[in-house]
């Protein structure tokens, strides 16, 4: 199996990645083009200036924020590069990681932070796409908000906060969006069991007619 993303030869950056690299320079920590998708990694402290540059550059013009989400790489300190086994708390599933063919020499680097926040961008002028990733550590799951760049990031970041517990600093209204405020934990984290149950919260009484928090 030679077409794994981590093992395929990086090759020449795509024309779009070349433009992005020329614009952002040292701010891009890593870049890769695989299966026609272009992806760059940036430092989470620089996310706002990177997004502003990507949005306002006349040759890039990423004016539409398609999606914000996160990935939980729990127990995968160096990506998917060695066999791993994860059991969830209820033994509901066994996840077998890549087999020994993945044990190839990779450039050594320290353990990666647990979370990655992923932004998908689209340009409505040139119709090209870019995926932006920021690693976020488990002990400090915070990141500056990009609602100042795209107001549409508001709900998407609320969803990421709700399901992954990543806090977006400077967000105007960071409350849960799907789950109730009384919900404990963040269900899309890998250590939240699929069959974990929580007590149903009553929605009666005078509080039911009020927003969950003053807006």
């Amino acid at each position: 199996m030679h077409d794994d993303e981590n093992q395929a030869t990086p090759g020449e950056p795509s024309p779009l990645l070349r433009k992005v690299l020329a614009r952002l320079g040292q701010q891009v920590l890593e870049h890769r083009a695989w299966r026609g998708d272009d992806r760059i990694h940036v430092d989470r402290r620089q996310i706002v200036e990177v997004c502003l540059a990507l949005r306002d550059d006349p040759e890039l013009c990423f004016d539409l924020l398609v999606d914000v989400t996160a990935v939980d790489y729990m127990g995968q300190p160096d990506g998917f590069r060695r066999p791993v086994e994860i059991w969830d708390r209820n033994r509901a599933m066994v996840r077998r990681g890549p087999l020994s063919r993945h044990q190839v020499a990779m450039p050594e680097r320290g353990p990666l932070p647990r979370f990655a926040v992923v932004y998908h961008l689209l340009s409505t002028r040139f119709f090209h796409r870019l995926r932006l990733k920021c690693r976020v550590p488990e002990d400090d799951p915070t990141l500056p908000t990009v609602t100042t760049v795209w107001p549409g990031a508001n709900w998407l970041e609320r969803e990421t906060y709700d399901l992954y517990g990543i806090r977006f600093q400077g967000h105007p209204d960071l409350r849960r969006i799907y789950l109730d405020e009384s919900f404990v934990g963040h269900p899309l984290r890998k250590d939240y069991g699929k069959r974990d149950e929580q007590p149903v919260q009553p929605l009666h009484g005078p509080a039911a007619n009020e927003p969950r928090r003053p807006h």
């Binding site: 794994d4 999606d67 939980d72 998917f80 791993v84 599933m93 996840r95 990681g97 890549p98």
Partner: peptide, 14 residues
């Protein structure tokens, strides 16, 4: 859109 992360197994990692 669907964003799929694979760890090489038969199930999507995300």
């Amino acid at each position: 859109g669907f964003y799929i992360v694979s760890d090489g197994s038969g199930r999507p990692y995300k």
